[in-house]
Amino acid sequence: MLDMDKTRRKLVLACILGGLWLLACGLSGLLIGSTSIDIVRALNGSGPDAQILLVARLPRVLLAALTGGALASAGVGFQALLRNPLATPFTLGVSSGASLGAASAILLGLDTALLGSAAVPLFALAGAGLAVAVVYMLARRRGSLLSTNTLLLAGVCLAFFFGAVMLFLHYLADFGNSYRMIRWLMGSLDITDIMVPLKVFVLTIIGFILLYSNSRRLNVMSAGEEVAQSRGIDVDKVQRRIYFSGSLLTASVVAATGPIGFVGLVVPHVVRMFTGPDHRVLLPASFFAGAGFLILCDLLARVLIAPTEIPVGVITAILGGPFLVWLLRRQVEN
């Protein structure tokens, strides 16, 4: 009885602390930048302060929060699905498909130089969808069960294949387009359209709810497919749900931002050290932690060598990699 309260208590505590963390990071992201703003003036009028806050920073902070949250929770899902703590949202080829889609749109000239167009994210989303479908078809066994080993192998192989096609597209492209492709691959949250995070929000929330509805099953499945089956889980169905919901979470944000690495690997590990492995607590906690983490990374990307912006993917990798190594070492030593 005490334990039932424990899981729920942990969930409530994780949501409260996660919410506070996200609020603190969000406010920092809104208020701090290369140009200082007066918050009172920004909220009252339509002067430059309001422009900076509402047009330059708000959509960006919202997109950063959704992207960080989606990638971190998708990372939790893929690590559980593949029973591999090194799995990331990009392990199964979703981002390579998205990258290929985006690069194709850029090469076809569907993205005008600076104005931006909806074609690139749409192509990226389609590319991600194609990758998800191909990997799924390859991993299906003749019977019905999805083989996680084949899934992993198919995802990694497809990522290599799409990578090679990407190189070919680079070879065909002129310098301008090639540069645009590379910049897309570095990941960016540089948007000014408030509609972008709103669209991403719809897809992200569907993916998250679907993933969370399987959170208890993820716990049972961490003992392996056979044990999960003997506990009464329809393993095939649950694996498919996790694969598609994780892919939806990943694709919805990668299409808008490009691939931003390390969030989906580092955040689940760090959060697991505090919450334990129960996916009912871990999933929402990772969402909040990832959301705040990416807002902070984007803040650093904006201010470190202002007015030049560093691609946010570079910051996440530089911060995330060593931090994870340090935490793991500390855990081993303890």
């Binding site: 559980a80 961490s222 003992a223 392996g224 056979e226 044990v227 003997s230 492995p277 129960d278």
Partner: peptide, 12 residues
């Protein structure tokens, strides 16, 4: 069913 080996990936 009690299998021969029971291995957990995460520290439950």
């Amino acid at each position: 069913y009690v299998p021969q080996d029971y291995h957990l990936v995460f520290p439950f």
